[in-house]
């Protein structure tokens, strides 16, 4: 269980990741804001308290692996990795610029700390499953954390990977679905209703639970949970979480980020950060 101090650090990390996302997107003027913000909270728990890794040795073989299958939310992962010391924070401002190490969709051959290249939705799921299989065959005590989007769940490959993971007993795999209820063209319900994701993953042979995306203490518990089955965590999130104006924007999958709005949003996040710091 996380103590109060740890919990506070994770809350702060989550906000700092979100500020990092704004810093990145402001520089290019637009980007995948909504999904990056909803992913930031679980990322803070994973990189703040759960995963084993070494920023000085990103390829350390005994590290836990993280696969961001919703690869377009790279900005959230980049901010996390920069804050954790994988590369200088200033580099976040190079997002999507020519010859950057931070492309819109994550690339393991470019960014220290990125464990898998993704972008074509659904593919990260199979690669994470392959990594989990490999680590298990080698008898390693490592884990693979996979985050897919909820729109991504439309891809058939996702379900091939889910069936495989359960059938092969990959209990070193923790599969998150960022259930923020929206995809590019609109709501999940309107476009292709995923139905009950927890029930679906359970039926596929996972130990499946649903957790509020910003309930850090509960996230920690489910991430640390070990089972004889692969674990599925349906992250009940809000797209754009943490910035009221973004949360309330219906089409917030990809948004324009002007200097003015970036300044406003950063102020909101910094105020939240101060509130936590001031809260003895």
């Amino acid at each position: 269980m996380l103590d109060d101090r740890q919990l506070k650090e994770i809350k702060k990390l989550a906000i700092r990741i979100k500020i990092g996302v704004i810093d990145e997107l402001e520089e290019v003027g637009s980007g995948h804001l909504g999904g990056s913000l909803s992913a930031a909270d679980p990322l803070a728990v994973l990189y703040g308290a759960v995963m084993k890794y070494d920023p000085k040795n990103p390829k350390w073989e005994e590290r836990d692996k993280f696969v961001l299958s919703k690869g377009h939310c790279g900005p959230a992962l980049y901010a996390t990795l920069a804050i954790k010391g994988f590369f200088p924070y200033e580099e976040l401002k190079t997002l999507n610029k020519p010859h950057t190490n931070l492309p819109s969709h994550v690339d393991k051959n470019k960014t220290p700390g990125v464990d898998m290249t993704t972008g074509s939705l659904g593919q990260g799921a199979s690669t994470a499953v392959g990594m989990a299989l490999g680590e298990k065959l080698r008898g390693k005590n490592t884990r693979v954390f996979l985050m897919t989007g909820d729109g991504e769940i439309d891809e058939g490959q996702v379900w091939e990977a889910a069936m495989f993971a359960a059938a092969k007993g990959l209990n070193n795999l923790c599969w998150m679905v960022d259930f923020n209820k929206k995809q590019l063209d609109g709501t999940i319900k309107d476009i292709l209703d995923t139905g009950d994701l927890e029930a679906k993953f359970s039926a596929f042979g996972f130990d499946a639970v649903t957790v509020k995306g910003d309930d850090y203490a509960a996230l920690y518990e489910v991430f640390m949970k070990r089972s004889d089955k692969p674990v599925a965590v349906i992250l009940d999130t809000i797209k754009g979480r943490g910035i009221k104006e973004v949360e309330e924007t219906p089409d917030n999958h990809s948004m324009t980020v002007s200097h003015e709005s970036a300044a406003r949003w950063r102020d909101e996040l910094k105020a939240a950060l101060s509130a936590i710091e001031g809260d003895k």
Partner: peptide, 16 residues
């Protein structure tokens, strides 16, 4: 499930 197989192979390659 050939798509998944190719992806699993990629993941296996990524861990050596």
């Amino acid at each position: 499930a050939e798509s998944n197989m190719a992806g699993v192979a990629a993941g296996l390659a990524a861990v050596g």
